[in-house]
Design a protein around this nucleic acid. Structure first.
Lengths: 357, 357
DNA sequence: CTGAAAGCGCTAACAT
DNA sequence: ATGTTAGCGCTTTCAG
């Protein structure tokens, strides 16, 4: 009821035109900032606009142009800090250039990812920022290629022969983690990952492995990769530790290659009554706000969200504006925050200064 | 380069029409599911559609209608689990009804909130789900009213005379927290909140206060409300505890009325070397995944995101379809998860079984 | 049952 | 400097 009453039709460009005593074309010109309009008329148009509260309909306006001033963003999920920040950044960047960001979540499904992309194509978006579920070889990227869409791939991606890519320098970050862990004296480390994210997981794993082996050739690196989802990982991890514990050869540190893995690891430690860093050390790829307020604070690799977002948008708009050239592949450096969850192995259990409770 | 080559113009409805040997109007009818089309022609249309890979341009299609099949969602931020989940839910619900969700973040700014709303109005969205920065009396809600927009208000809102509202039953949840805390023996509790979120904060505060006082008339309830942002709260809290510690009358429990407050409290506890629940108990409004993997696990009020989202969409679509009647105000029940961060006051410090480290 | 015509609100040539 | 014309891609009367 209350919602209905003010439903008056919005003024169109013609309403403005007649109020100002000019043609719609002139109104359009004034609003577009064309300078060849007689100042007097321009003023009358502006007055009419003001009076009627006129605003151009961006969609109708785009209808006439080739590409619409819309950027599509496709993220695997919206629930995590990382992608939330990413969407937020992208939104601001798009707005700065007069575009609207339309974000969608693929919910970690490649099928859905492609459907969304098709919808974005239907919308004739000017460009797409795609954070693929798996990697650059998924069906979504294929769809973009096949349909000549303009886009940039971010995050779970290394390089591509058709699209520009921007992501965190996983390998370098992992190397730094390796240096830190080896430096603390760890010689048996478990690396936890999700096979799904193929390319980046491999980069993170190899970055760690090569540096670790270089610094400590005798280091033992176990790997628990879960192909499918996060839940199975919980089981995998439980089994892994059960076996090692029996044989008394459990790792002294865990490096999780993705956020959910860090949560799973932490939860498994809880179950076993292990505490960081006395019983085991932990570093995770992906930082989160809570990691610095828990006790112990959790060491983490911080991805440069802002840099990824701004570089992605920059390169995307260059393509939108028609710039040619081969696809570029950017890697943005991460920060590694070594917090309390990492310590030296073999320190007397439960000895620690501030590590009670 | 590679991105350019496949840029062929997409087939329009006329292309389909000529391929099928019918008019565009007929194609439109077939695609709209009108049954009065000769089956033979319908089939030819479908074949042509298939052949050309034709898909309707949803924006062009909406152009002809009064309202576009777009739902706008405005959230205060995208970075938190709560709003991330909310957007995700809303997206799915909108899609189910053939609409596209366009989400935007007001970044906790009422000014921006109104700007975004204006843009959504320009887009002629069919309806808006607004999670206001502050409450139902902000400029954004005013704008919606003034322009006869269809919408529903969620989260930081209690009831409104112009729009339907859906939110968590803050008062009931707070009452439950009060029962739990009083039950554990707490007689001095600090409540932490953000004044900005006026209505809900008051509901949460009063829900707690009234129940607590009823159960334990001698209880002492301190309140630290921060008007502006989160950062100042950190200082406020620090000062608060410094004073109490000197006088040795610090509270035995803290109830934070919003997520960031929980983080700030936790961080302050760290600074002081206090551990939950031995040194102090903690409950926070708003749950997060990490709260169950830390040691101790943090007690929290879980907001019913799915219920809020689905009820909001339901009532919104009813309005979109023209249903009248006075605005409704729904309150969805929360779950209170009493985890390890809550214990009895005065238990011997650092005594606890599983609470080491 | 089908197609021609008339737009939705706007912009870009092309005249004037 | 401005208006006229012709659409963008689609849907919807309304005759046939």
């Amino acid at each position: 009821m209350a919602q209905q009453e003010a439903q008056q039709r919005r003024p169109s460009i013609h309403d403005v035109a007649s109020h100002a005593g000019v043609s719609a074309a002139t109104v359009s010109k004034v609003l577009a900032g064309v300078t060849t309009v007689k100042p007097e008329n321009a003023q009358r148009v502006l007055d009419a606009v003001e009076l009627l509260g006129y605003r151009v309909d961006p969609l109708a306006s785009d209808m006439r142009r080739a590409k619409r001033r819309i950027i599509g963003a496709i993220m695997p999920e919206f629930e995590s800090e990382f992608f939330g920040q990413m969407v937020s950044e992208l939104e601001g960047l798009a707005e700065q250039r007069g575009y609207t960001l339309v974000a969608a979540s693929s919910r970690e499904s490649e099928t859905r990812e492609k459907e969304i992309l098709a919808r974005m194509h239907d919308w004739r978006v000017a460009g797409v920022v795609l954070a693929p579920v798996r990697n650059e070889h998924g069906p979504a990227a294929g769809f973009m290629k096949a349909n000549g869409m303009t886009g940039v791939l971010i995050d779970r991606v290394l390089a591509d022969d058709a699209f520009d890519t921007v992501s965190a320098d996983s390998a370098a970050a992992s190397a730094e983690v390796a240096r830190a862990l080896v430096g603390e004296g760890h010689r048996h480390v478990l690396v936890v990952g999700l096979g799904q994210q193929a390319a980046t997981v491999r980069a993170r794993l190899e970055g760690f492995r090569s540096t670790a082996l270089e610094l400590a050739p005798d280091i033992r690196i176990d790997v628990v990769l879960c192909e499918s989802d996060v839940e199975p990982l919980r089981t995998l991890l439980r089994d892994y530790f059960s076996k090692r514990e029996a044989g008394d050869d459990r790792p002294t540190a865990v490096y999780s290659l993705f956020l959910k893995g860090t949560l799973v690891a932490l939860s498994e430690f809880r179950r076993r009554g292990w505490h960081c860093p006395n019983d085991i050390s932990l570093v995770g790829f992906d930082d989160a706000e809570w990691m610095q307020v828990t006790w112990p604070a959790i060491a983490a690799v911080v991805q440069p969200v802002r840099e990824i977002a701004s570089n992605a948008m920059e390169v995307l708009f260059r393509r939108i504006e028609g710039e040619g050239g081969p696809p570029t592949a950017r890697l943005e450096p991460c920060k590694v925050l070594m917090r309390e969850s990492v310590g030296s192995p073999g320190s007397v259990p439960h000895s620690g200064g501030g590590d009670r409770q």
